[in-house]
Nucleic acid binder design. Structure first.
Lengths: 211, 211
DNA sequence: TAGATTGTTAATCGATTAACAATC
DNA sequence: TAGATTGTTAATCGATTAACAATC
């Protein structure tokens, strides 16, 4: 699966821009230059300008962009206007952390429910979201036309959960289990691999590999 | 900060190889080919071979690599032999999830403690790790020569925590707060930005941007 | 006007993929 | 031997950076 209009790299930077722009004081200057954004985020200014050119227009020499318009354009491009429904499978610590994560509603995502196999968890609620029995997962996804599944179950359960999601019409899967899932080509699989992050950090501490 | 001997891309793939190799049945075939690994993980076989050439030797045509030697070589390269000590700042849901995360000890990381400002959390323990008052953070990092800090506090607190860590000699920071932190050049900052992941997923659901 | 900034084209850089000889 | 696989060199691809004319 590849991006056509916008590169994956650009797509990953846009939320950073958005977050930075939103962090600016609202009563401050209403314009902002690509150079300012670049410096604030440690990026190249031409890169920022190129990214912005793909999702917005109206940057003026000497003046820059209108901050609010830029925010609107990026949000529109990223589809934060639409509300996307998602489910979380696995109501352990990580699943609970995600249920509390403020970013979801903020960026147009709505977690409709969580699922777990543990009978003592089923029936309770976390941050106002109900925890349902795992065997109801497929049914609910199909009925509610859920498009996004977030997997926070143990390694051993992840593939089975993934298969159920795919069968039930889920299109995108965000996987926190440290395992390589097999999915059909039309499914977008995003792996959130803690081990990768650890490796990069760990490597930094053994200096000779850096220059 | 840039990598010399190994590219960042390779560094991110090595843990994937490691995880896959460890998932193989131990009583199975003792050799494995780059092609097999590549197919299992959906990568290019030459890419795998190139990556492996950087951290191991002894692959034999027609036979492949000795699985156990490969595991040892990757682990040694990634520095999983040494135990790295780390602290978590913020014992909320995400912090607690990380305290329970099995991957840390498995990959040579030891979380020595967590810190929080909430008096009702301070003094308790999560998964056998003590939760200490936030104002003890700098002292403990300096005394115990902590090298890695994991930030799971709210956005507004993240920069202050980050500054304390840097002042106390921490070299690598893993930031889960959705904010761009300022750090000196010699510090490795790894951002775990949920918003970025969301953007990529969300984008997939608006098909026209994909080919 | 002078100078900062945009937007775009060209050059550079790095990573991936293709091709292929060596070899078990 | 035949064929699968390694390891390496060359070609391709894509992203970043540099250069610069346009413009406010």
């Amino acid at each position: 699966m590849q991006l056509q209009s916008v590169s994956l790299q650009t797509l990953k930077r846009l939320p950073l821009f958005l977050n930075y722009l939103k962090s600016l004081p609202e009563d401050g200057v209403s314009n902002i230059s690509a150079t300012t954004i670049a410096n604030a985020l440690g990026l190249n200014d031409v890169q920022v300008r190129k990214d912005l050119a793909l999702v917005s227009t109206g940057g003026r020499p000497r003046i820059g962009y209108v901050t609010q318009k830029l925010i609107n354009d990026i949000e529109q491009f990223l589809g934060y206007d639409d509300v996307n429904t998602a489910v979380i499978i696995g109501a352990g610590n990580l699943g609970r952390a995600l249920l509390f994560y403020d970013g979801f509603p903020k960026y147009g995502f709505n977690i409709v429910a969580a699922f777990d196999v543990d009978p003592s968890a089923v029936g309770t609620a976390v941050n106002g979201k109900r925890i349902l029995p795992a065997d109801k997962l497929g049914d609910l996804c199909t009925r509610m036309k859920i498009r996004i599944g977030i997997i926070t179950v143990p390694e051993t359960e992840a593939q089975a959960v993934c298969d159920t999601l795919v069968e039930s019409g889920v299109l995108a899967i965000w996987n926190f289990a440290p395992v390589h899932l097999k999915v059909p080509g039309h499914i977008l699989l995003q792996n959130e691999n803690m081990a990768c992050s650890l490796a990069v950090l760990s490597k930094h501490l053994t200096d000779q590999h850096f220059r």
